[in-house]
Simulated scan of single mutants.
Amino acid sequence: MILNSFILLISLFLPSEQRRQEDIPVYSYEIVNVYPHDTTAFTQGLFFKDGYLYESTGQVDQSTIRKVELETGNTVQVEKFPAGIFGEGIIDWGDRLIGLSWRRQTGFEWDINSFKMKGTFEYQGEGWGLTRNSTHILMSDGTPDIRFLDPETLNEVRRIEVKAQGRPLINLNELEWVDGEIFANIWQTDFIARINPENGDVIGLINLRGLLSREDIIPGYTDVLNGIAVNAEGKLFVTGKYWPKLFEIRLVKIK
Rank of each mutant, 00 (worst) to 15 (best):
L100G: 04
L9M: 14
T39W: 01
L205H: 12
G119L: 01
L154V: 02
S5N: 15
D141S: 10
E181S: 09
I112S: 08
E55M: 04
G89I: 05
N196V: 09
I137K: 02
N33I: 00
I31D: 01
T239W: 06
S28E: 10
I182H: 05
I192Q: 09
T131H: 04
V60R: 11
I91D: 01
Q18G: 07
D150T: 03
S28Q: 11
N33T: 01
T222W: 05
T153E: 02
Y242K: 15
Q105D: 04
N173T: 11
D61P: 11
V202Y: 10
L70F: 02
E88H: 08
D111N: 14
K163F: 08
G210W: 06
N133Y: 03
R19I: 13
I31M: 00
A184V: 13
I254T: 15
G58D: 10
I203P: 08
K241M: 13
Q21F: 15
A164K: 13
L97E: 01
I65D: 07
E181N: 09
I203D: 10
F47G: 02
Q21G: 13
T239D: 12
L9T: 11
S28W: 00
D216P: 08
Q21A: 15
S16F: 05
Q59F: 03
F108K: 03
I203A: 06
L172R: 10
Y221Q: 15
Q44T: 08
E126R: 08
Y221C: 06
P244A: 06
P197A: 05
D223G: 13
F108R: 00
N171M: 14
A164W: 12
V34I: 08
G200W: 03
L149F: 03
R147V: 01
R20V: 11
D141R: 01
I112P: 00
G220S: 07
I137P: 07
E174N: 08
F237M: 05
L236M: 11
N185A: 11
I85W: 00
T222N: 07
L236D: 03
S140L: 11
V68F: 04
L154D: 01
T135W: 00
I192P: 14
N74C: 11
E69I: 11
L172M: 14
L172K: 09
D201M: 04
P82I: 04
Y27Q: 05
W128K: 13
F86T: 05
A229V: 05
M117G: 06
G73T: 07
K253E: 15
T120H: 01
K80A: 12
H37L: 06
Q188C: 09
I254K: 14
G58T: 07
Q59M: 13
P144D: 12
T222H: 08
S134I: 00
G142K: 08
I90M: 13
R19D: 15
F183I: 00
V32S: 02
A193P: 14
Y27G: 01
R194V: 13
I10H: 14
G84P: 05
V238M: 09
F48I: 00
V178W: 05
T57Q: 10
